[in-house]
Design a protein around this nucleic acid. Structure first.
Lengths: 176, 176
DNA sequence: ACGAATTATTTGAAACCTAAAATATCTAGG
DNA sequence: CCTAGATATTTTAGGTTTCAAATAATTCGT
């Protein structure tokens, strides 16, 4: 019963970690000697967290925007007509109540519009404002630049392999 | 400037999503037509989130334990002598201040011990209590069962491929 | 139409997270 | 010794997250 650890970490500060080469010191180390699936899961998790941490940090430094806000705008960007909150929460894979505050903040900043649905008075439609659309373009450009940089060492072949294998894994995990 | 979205989602409620087959409705859909790296990143992210969401949910249902708490215990389990908070935060890849409350809760529950370091009065050493060690064994067993189930459809070959490709990606992303 | 389920969203409690500032302690240089 | 800087942790402020319960509006069976 060695080799465990599961989930939910996000890139930390790491600002003054001069001795990282000496001590790997990340979650993955916990999996030494474990079952292959466990080790793979830990590697998947730490890889994802390193990447999302870098993106989060740099988007914040450059634009002072949070990742959830960026994700929300990314969803709205491709739906000019707007989306209902429920649909948005499904797409973002977060719970419904979660969006209330996030949308509220973005409305305050003038980046998204929130209007009642004429057909269904329970529902709200949120969509990008003109300003939101303009800002998002800048965010997205930087995001793309970052992702390309982080993935730079991967050959097209490796990328394709990862796409395929992850599709399998995703299907496997979704089935249960 | 299509195809964007970046990061930080976690498996949502999804409890009453009967129509998921009809509408894929997840972040990945945003990437249609984008650069391969962007699409891969979204797939990586959604796959990780689906898996960690399932593990989180089931650990909570079965043991009422959170993922961060489980991770913390997993780190301590392999360090019988205990760890300093700073070392723990490095390994868990979370910021330092983050652990204060988490450790506090686990101490309250009697699962971990927190004692001052005799050599360095700034530091604290945390380690698993006897009860914590026992409980963690049960958590870990269930976690392993879950991961194996979620990864069930993956061939040993695919697992190895993923391990290798993710190692490359992790190295690439860590370098920047 | 009426009332019962259903659906859309909000609210509230508790936990988690970062980043930056504050506190306390240790270590070295002079 | 004593002060400057480094280190370990906590605190504070601002968000994010889940889950469960509450509110409000729609739909459907009868």
């Amino acid at each position: 019963m060695d080799c465990q650890a599961s989930g939910n970490m996000v890139q930390g500060d790491m600002s003054e970690a001069a001795d990282l080469a000496e001590a790997p010191a990340d979650l993955e180390a916990v999996a030494r000697g474990g079952k292959a699936e466990l080790r793979l899961w830990l590697r998947l998790l730490s890889t994802t967290n390193i990447i999302s941490g870098q993106i989060r940090r740099r988007l914040r430094e450059k634009f002072d925007i949070t990742l959830p806000a960026f994700d929300l705008m990314a969803q709205l960007e491709r739906e000019p007509e707007g989306l209902r909150l429920g649909e948005l929460s499904k797409r973002m894979m977060v719970t419904n109540g979660n969006l209330t505050g996030l949308v509220e903040r973005l409305v305050q900043e003038g980046l998204v519009l929130r209007e009642t649905d004429a057909q269904d008075r329970r529902a709200f439609i949120v969509r990008l404002s003109r300003a939101g659309r303009a800002k998002f373009a800048a965010y997205a450009k930087e995001n793309e630049r970052l992702v390309l940089a982080l993935f730079e060492d991967l050959s097209p072949d490796t990328i394709q392999t990862l796409m395929d294998s992850l599709a399998m894994l995703k299907a496997s995990a979704s089935r249960r």
